[in-house]
């Protein structure tokens, strides 16, 4: 199992609540290589749900996440893109990945990435997230597959002032995304 995963490259678009938690789960699982893209820097407000630490505030998220992963497993190769992903940069940076994880915040950015991947990155499975704000309602989290696109979340609860993204539910969806990546790479479990 580890031998299969060591040979795989997974793309992670976004290194916020979803992307940082998903990437660390994948690194701990033994993925050989990660390509991580984000334009943002770590802020104190991110620490409520994102896989960063106080001493990393002010650093580009992709660098901070690369350091976190190196502390977990220095054998994981991490390539970073510190900038905004648009259709062309998405194709250039993620081409060749075995799976692409959509981990953006904004619905429009999610749509752009998914459409780009489905149109221009042939055969690449995409694991996206939609609907993870708030707390509780674990029973509403679902996995739906539309061709090579998998979407995880409740598909309903977007973030708002009343419904912020919070560590447990964001982390749950991020780990479900990582779990789906493993299923895509390893095939279904036996038994």
């Amino acid at each position: 199992m580890r031998r299969i995963l060591r040979g795989k490259t997974v793309g992670v678009a976004g290194a916020g609540g979803l992307g940082s938690n998903c990437a660390v789960a994948l690194a701990r699982s033994g993925i050989g290589s990660l390509r991580i893209a984000d334009f943002d820097v770590v802020s104190e407000a991110n620490l409520d749900r994102q896989y960063y630490f106080l001493d990393q505030v002010g650093r580009p998220k992709v660098e901070a996440l690369r350091d976190v992963i190196a502390r977990v497993d220095p054998a994981v190769r991490v390539e970073t893109f510190d900038g905004r992903i648009d259709p062309d940069s998405a194709v250039a940076f993620f081409a060749g990945c075995a799976v692409l994880v959509e981990a953006f915040d904004d619905a429009g950015a999610k749509a752009m990435l998914i459409r780009t991947a489905l149109d221009r990155l042939p055969d690449m499975p995409v694991v996206a997230a939609s609907g993870l704000a708030g707390w509780g309602a674990d029973e509403d989290l679902k996995v739906r597959r539309f061709g090579r696109l998998t979407v995880i979340g409740d598909e309903e609860r977007g973030v708002s002032d009343a419904l912020p993204p919070m560590a447990p539910r964001v982390g749950a969806v991020a780990c479900m995304q990582a779990n789906e990546v493993l299923a895509l790479l390893l095939g279904p479990m036996e038994g």
């Binding site: 976004g14 619905a107 999610k110 739906r144 973030v159 964001v170």
Partner: peptide, 10 residues
């Protein structure tokens, strides 16, 4: 019919 759309959050 199954139809999917996206909401913000990440």
């Amino acid at each position: 019919v199954e139809a999917l759309h996206l909401v913000s959050g990440g």
